[in-house]
């Protein structure tokens, strides 16, 4: 079936089965491979993207659900919050293998967009759906706090 999608501000048309998760549309059809597959069951957050400004798991979002919505992936994350988060990630050298990090960043952007100055507990709660097998959590938390300070300044 044909679907019209708005991805990172661009109109894209894809021809896939209606129940195809947006994750696989992004990766296999549109070559936007920054969004990662980690579990397929909403348990790791590697596939996190923004749908109308809110972080969602793209493995649980069908292509049909995305029609008419604004989809932002890591490749298109460019608002001031995203820039601050990415910069903080680089400054803190958060990444190890890096495979979870697109999802971590998209969640962190969601968190700071909702809550400019989250406490440790709020960070733990919001980010606990994003697993990192390399356990970069200490730095993820530091980077979120650094990004919050950058945005305040």
């Amino acid at each position: 079936m044909q679907f019209q999608l708005n991805i990172n501000g661009q109109e894209r048309s894809v021809d896939v089965a209606a129940d195809t998760p947006l994750l696989w549309v992004l990766r296999d059809e549109l070559n936007l491979t920054g969004t990662k597959f980690g579990c397929g069951v909403a348990s790791c957050g590697a596939c996190t993207i923004h749908l109308n400004g809110t972080p969602v798991r793209s493995c649980q979002t069908t292509v049909e659900d995305a029609v008419g919505a604004r989809v932002i992936t890591i490749e298109g994350a460019s608002d001031p919050v995203a820039k601050a988060v990415q910069q903080a990630w680089v400054e803190k050298d958060v990444v190890q293998c890096g495979f979870c990090q697109s999802g971590q960043i998209m969640s962190a952007v969601g968190l700071l967009s909702e809550n400019a100055n989250p406490s440790d507990e709020e960070i733990d709660d919001y980010m606990s759906g994003n697993a990192c097998r390399c356990a970069t959590y200490v730095r993820i938390k530091d980077a979120i706090k650094l990004a919050a300070r950058k945005l305040e300044a």
Binding site: L32, T33, G34, T35, T73, I74, E75, A77, Q86, W89, V90, D93, V94, V95, G98, Q101, S102, I105
Partner: peptide, 8 residues
């Protein structure tokens, strides 16, 4: 590898 892994 920091920037490549933070911008997808």
């Amino acid at each position: 590898d920091s920037s490549d892994k933070t911008n997808g």
